[in-house]
Amino acid sequence: MASASSLVLDKTELHEEHKYIYQTLIDAYKDIGVGINFTELPYTRSVVSANSKTIDGIMLRAENHTRGYSDLIRIKLPFPVSNTIVVINKTLCPNCKLSQLYSIAHVSGFSFPETSLNISGSQNYKIELSENERLWHFFKAGRVNAIVTCDTYLPESLRDESKYRYVQIESNQMYHYLHKDHQAIAESLKTALQSAANMRSDSKTRAVLTSPQ
């Protein structure tokens, strides 16, 4: 287990345009004198591991993906929202409405409003995979009509409007999470993140950090 001066955090790969979030966190931890090391765990296991203090926390996760894990402290980040999107394969389902999707996949533990997709019927197949890399390969291989993910994670290889259609179904605030035993570090980190936000010219970034949690 990591000491108070060094933490082990789960790190899910982000799209290039969002990687500044991780750098902001790395810099904030450096400012408070805490080292961080990264591990990559399956999506659900990372939350379970952080909640049980097998690891110290999670770099980035939507709030609705951590509900029920009471031993985690959430820390607001300089990042407005993450959009939950349906990515549809145009070749397999060129003119499909969401309710007409025959099959859809997502990572286990990725919560989304299933009612908006109407995938509870017997004609719809929902597939859960353990991690994002498997999800991307599964989808690119044409195994399902669509996937549900968030735009923060979606890789460049799946950002092609000639092949895929994108439908936003939800927006969620993203947070950094630490185990509750790291309350003192969490408070120091919040201050460091606020200082980082004050150095940025983006007023929306500052608004996210200063709004009520």
Rank of each mutant, 00 (worst) to 15 (best):
M1E: 12
A2N: 12
S5T: 09
S5A: 12
S6Y: 08
L7R: 03
L9H: 00
K11S: 12
K11H: 13
T12L: 14
E13M: 13
H15C: 13
H15T: 13
E17C: 10
H18A: 13
Y20K: 11
I21V: 15
Y22S: 05
I26P: 06
D27I: 05
D27E: 15
Y29C: 04
Y29L: 10
K30L: 09
D31N: 08
D31I: 04
I32A: 06
I32W: 06
I32C: 07
G33C: 10
G35R: 14
N37K: 15
E40L: 12
L41G: 01
L41Q: 05
P42C: 06
Y43I: 09
Y43P: 04
Y43D: 06
T44Y: 13
R45D: 13
S46C: 09
V47P: 00
I55H: 02
I58A: 08
M59H: 11
R61I: 10
N64H: 15
H65D: 14
S70G: 04
D71C: 05
L72Y: 00
L77A: 04
P78Y: 02
P78V: 03
F79C: 08
V81L: 12
S82I: 11
N83D: 15
N83V: 11
T84Q: 02
V86Q: 00
V87S: 01
T91Y: 08
C93P: 03
N95I: 07
C96T: 02
K97E: 14
L98W: 03
Q100K: 10
S108P: 02
G109Y: 01
P113L: 05
E114A: 11
T115C: 10
L117S: 03
L117Y: 05
N124A: 15
Y125V: 14
I127W: 04
E128L: 10
E128W: 10
L129M: 06
S130P: 15
N132L: 14
L135M: 09
L135R: 01
W136A: 01
W136D: 01
W136V: 08
W136Y: 11
H137E: 15
H137P: 01
K140Q: 14
R143L: 08
C150R: 10
P155V: 07
E156R: 14
R159Y: 07
S162W: 08
S162K: 15
K163D: 06
R165V: 04
R165W: 02
Q168W: 05
E170S: 13
N172Q: 15
Q173I: 13
Y175W: 09
Y177G: 00
Y177M: 04
A186S: 08
E187A: 10
L189M: 01
L189Y: 00
L189F: 02
K190V: 05
K190G: 00
T191D: 05
Q194T: 08
A197D: 02
N198D: 11
R200M: 12
R200S: 15
R200F: 05
R200N: 15
S203G: 06
K204P: 02
T205W: 07
T205K: 08
L209A: 06
S211D: 08
